[in-house]
Structures are given as structure tokens and as C-alpha cells.
Simulated assay, not measured.
Amino acid sequence: MSEDPSDRSEAPQAKNAPKPTFLRSMRIVAWGFLGVRKNSKYHEDLGQANPFHLIIAAFLGVLIFIGVLLLAVKLAVSGT
């Protein structure tokens, strides 16, 4: 049973499209937190992202955000 390349259900990626990496996903999430991304770039990034990486990156982003908020409150409450 030989595999016929035309039987593949996967869509071929563009030759110049970068591979989905976790660092790219972190950048996409960071732009999402800021909310200042061009719509065309947003759609371009989503087309090149791994959904699993995006979920993990978003979770880490939320944890970092909460950590920064807690640090700011702790500094404000300690008062100098």
C-alpha cells in the first residue's frame, strides 16, 4: 500500500510561511493583551499559529499579568 500524495487531507503550507513556534505564540498573545495590532497582521499570525501553543501562551500571559498586578499592589501597600 503506497501512499498517494493527493490523498493527504492536510493543506500544504506556503513555502515562505514561518513554522509555528511557542515564541511566535507568546508574541501573538502579547499583541492581544495590548490590543494594538493591525487586522491584516492579526489574521496572518493566526494562520501561522499552533492552537495548543496559543492556549499555553495565553495561560502563561495571564499568570504573568496577575503576578505583575500583585507585585504592584504589594509595593503600593508597603508604602515608603
Rank of each mutant, 00 (worst) to 15 (best):
H43P: 00
L75W: 04
P18M: 04
Q48V: 02
A57C: 10
G35A: 09
N16A: 10
S40L: 05
L54E: 00
V68G: 04
S9G: 07
I56W: 01
A11T: 14
A14H: 10
K15C: 05
P5D: 09
N16Y: 06
P18L: 06
N16V: 03
A57I: 04
H53V: 07
E10D: 14
N50W: 02
K74P: 00
E44H: 06
V77K: 15
K38Q: 13
A57H: 07
K41W: 00
E44N: 08
L75H: 07
A72E: 12
I56H: 04
N50P: 03
K74C: 08
I55V: 14
G79F: 14
F33H: 12
L75Y: 05
I64F: 09
A14E: 11
K41T: 07
R8T: 12
I55N: 06
G47R: 10
P18Q: 05
F52A: 09
Y42F: 11
L54H: 00
S78Q: 13
S78F: 12
A49H: 03
V68S: 10
M26A: 05
L75G: 06
L69M: 15
S78E: 13
V73P: 00
K15M: 10
H43L: 07
V62A: 09
E44F: 02
H53Y: 15
I56C: 03
K38D: 15
I55C: 08
P51A: 04
D7V: 04
F22Q: 04
H53D: 15
K74W: 13
D45M: 14
S78C: 07
A76I: 12
S25N: 05
L46P: 01
L71E: 13
L54S: 01
N16S: 13
A17G: 03
A14R: 12
R24V: 01
R24W: 03
N39R: 06
V68W: 11
P20W: 06
I56L: 11
T80G: 15
K15F: 10
G67Q: 10
F52W: 03
L71H: 10
R37Y: 00
N50Y: 02
P18R: 11
H53C: 06
F52Q: 07
A49T: 07
V77C: 07
K38G: 10
P51T: 03
G79P: 07
N39G: 01
Y42V: 00
A11V: 15
A14T: 04
D4E: 11
A76N: 15
G35K: 04
P20M: 03
V36A: 14
L60Y: 09
R37T: 09
R27F: 03
K74R: 14
A11H: 11
L46K: 07
N50D: 15
A11F: 12
S6G: 02
V68Y: 12
V36S: 13
I66D: 11
V29Y: 00
